[in-house]
Design a binder for these strands. Structure first.
Length: 496
DNA sequence: GGTTGAGGCGGAGTGTCGTT
DNA sequence: AACGACACTCCGCCTCAACC
């Protein structure tokens, strides 16, 4: 909408001098302060790289007219937080009030509230369309985005995909359960153990790398003592980087071998504990052992490489404990925050406590109760439901138009094969990126395609039975991705 | 005191081994 | 051959400090 009509967001700017920009739907970064906007519309300039952010406050019919005043208050709070504008989006009418939008506008006008707050109203959305609100939203009070009085809002500017960021390997239910246990311990005033038993050799290796570094901060990749960092360190050393995991080698006769250590976190498929830094032919520990056996390095260097990684001139480097802690933390704490199981200060939320108590009462994170609760949270809070809605409606459009879309003719028969599937996913992705603008590829890097499109998303959906698991029916002619709506609906109904 | 640049940091993407 | 699970890389803001 903003793309099509710049006057909606640059109301006071003469049309000739309006900047070129595009509009994206995004969300608040997960670690920001209250109040959280319902959505964010980012307006990056096509030239110059500058960007305005508009907070969105959405009111449902069910919230009733008292929601209108809250909306006004919240939109002002967003401006105060550093947004360049705010829009209030409300129903076109309530049973008790015929023209709510005009009412809100008159409140704004009579209080001389500046042009950065806009008002839009909507008719009942068409839920059968990929664009449920298309043509049903009306602008009542356009906005003029303006530089914020307090400068850029903290960690603004990160347009992001609308659904939760998860990683197949590192974001398992048990990882999240353990992380929440650390959060509950520390946020509840408990304290971390006096020592995590980091091996002496490791402690001295770190001091050789950086004489001033604190061992735990170095190996856990933290740099402050915020609650979030304390929780992270407790989780990392208690459940993942245990003394055994931190040990790079053991001796077997006269040769060095990887010690076959496991973390204390379970894999989602119930096949035991996951491994890190070893278990693959070219794992960090395996590489270190080979170098020890070849006489390239001595034991002291082995410990240093374990801590700091190995840089390889041709090909990928080997991450050491420190850098791996960095990427692992991102996978875990951003997921937990986006699922709204901890708040921005690191305090577990009611839902977070609920997940933990379900794990404890019903047999752990791989129990069916925990799986069900996690799946429901993915669909609802993690917005995977929204993702499926887009997939479904876009597919419907595509296949209604041409039931044989993407299919190949093989011996006179139309077949929807692996290639069709790939093309289909690519079309979905490009719709989401360019038309719906719910996905934004910011990266300018070259991208040889070795992961499949939506690989992480589809893997998780499969894990929870929202799309078929069996390889033989992952896609279907004339349908695309078959979605198990019964399961999705059940997940939608679960009270979180 | 503004400008520039290196490195820290949070975030988000791609790469690849081994199993299925 | 593709996918799941580990693994690694890169982006871009922010900070701090050297430089003009």
């Amino acid at each position: 909408m903003f793309d099509a009509d710049p006057s909606l967001c640059f109301a006071d700017v003469p049309s000739g001098s309006r900047p070129n920009f595009s509009a994206f739907a995004t969300q608040e970064p997960s670690r920001t302060n209250w109040p959280l906007a319902d959505g964010v519309i980012s307006l990056p300039r096509t030239v110059g790289g500058d960007q305005d952010d508009v907070a969105l406050e959405y009111k449902r019919v069910a919230e009733g007219t008292h929601g209108l005043l809250t909306a006004v208050g919240q939109s002002l709070a967003y401006i105060d937080k550093g947004y360049n504008g705010a829009v209030i989006v409300i129903p076109r009418s309530y049973s008790s009030h015929g023209h709510p939008a005009e009412h809100v506008v008159s409140i704004l006008d009579s209080n001389e509230i500046d042009g950065r707050v806009g008002v839009f109203d909507y008719e009942d959305p068409d839920k059968s369309s990929p664009y449920p609100f298309r043509g049903r939203i009306r602008c009542i009070r356009p906005i003029t985005v303006a530089p914020s009085a307090i400068g850029k809002r903290p960690s603004a500017s990160k347009p992001s995909t609308q659904w939760v960021h998860l990683r197949e390997g590192s974001t398992t239910r048990d990882v999240i359960y353990c992380y929440l246990k650390s959060a509950i311990l520390l946020a509840g005033g408990g304290s971390a153990p006096p020592s995590y038993g980091i091996p002496e050799e490791m402690v001295s290796a770190v001091s050789r790398i950086d004489a001033t570094a604190d061992v735990e901060e170095f190996l856990g990749y933290t740099s402050d003592s915020s609650l979030g960092s304390q929780i992270w360190k407790d989780f990392w050393f208690k459940y993942v980087a245990t003394p055994e995991v931190l040990t790079p080698f053991k001796r077997s006769g006269s040769t060095y071998v990887a010690p076959a250590a496991f973390t204390k976190v379970l894999k989602d498929d119930g096949s035991g504990h996951s491994q890190i830094f070893e278990g693959r032919a070219n794992g960090l520990k395996e590489t270190i052992c080979t170098r020890l056996n070849d006489g390239v390095i001595a034991e002291d260097q082995a410990w240093e490489e374990m801590a700091n990684g190995i840089s390889i001139s041709s090909g990928q480097n080997k991450q050491g404990v420190r850098s791996r802690a960095h990427s692992y933390r991102e996978d875990v704490d951003s997921a937990v925050a986006q699922l709204q199981w901890i708040d921005n200060s690191g305090q577990p939320t009611d839902e977070g406590y609920r997940f933990v108590s379900i794990c404890e009462r019903f047999g752990g994170p791989n129990s069916s109760a925990a799986v069900k609760y996690f799946g429901a949270t993915l669909i609802q809070t993690g917005h995977y439901g929204t993702f499926l809605h887009y997939v479904h409606r876009l597919s419907e459009e595509i296949f209604l138009d041409d039931p044989l879309a993407f299919s190949k003719s093989k011996g006179g028969v139309s077949v929807f094969d692996e290639d069709s599937y790939w093309e289909y996913l690519r079309v979905l992705q490009s719709h989401m990126e360019n038309d719906l603008k719910v996905l934004r590829k910011v990266s300018g890097r070259s991208r040889p395609r070795s992961r499949t499109i939506f690989q992480a998303e589809l893997t998780f959906l499969r894990k929870y039975g929202f799309i078929p698991e069996s390889r033989s029916n992952r896609y279907r002619l004339g349908v695309g991705l078959p979605i198990n709506w019964v399961r999705v609906n059940e997940a939608m109904q679960v009270e979180l």
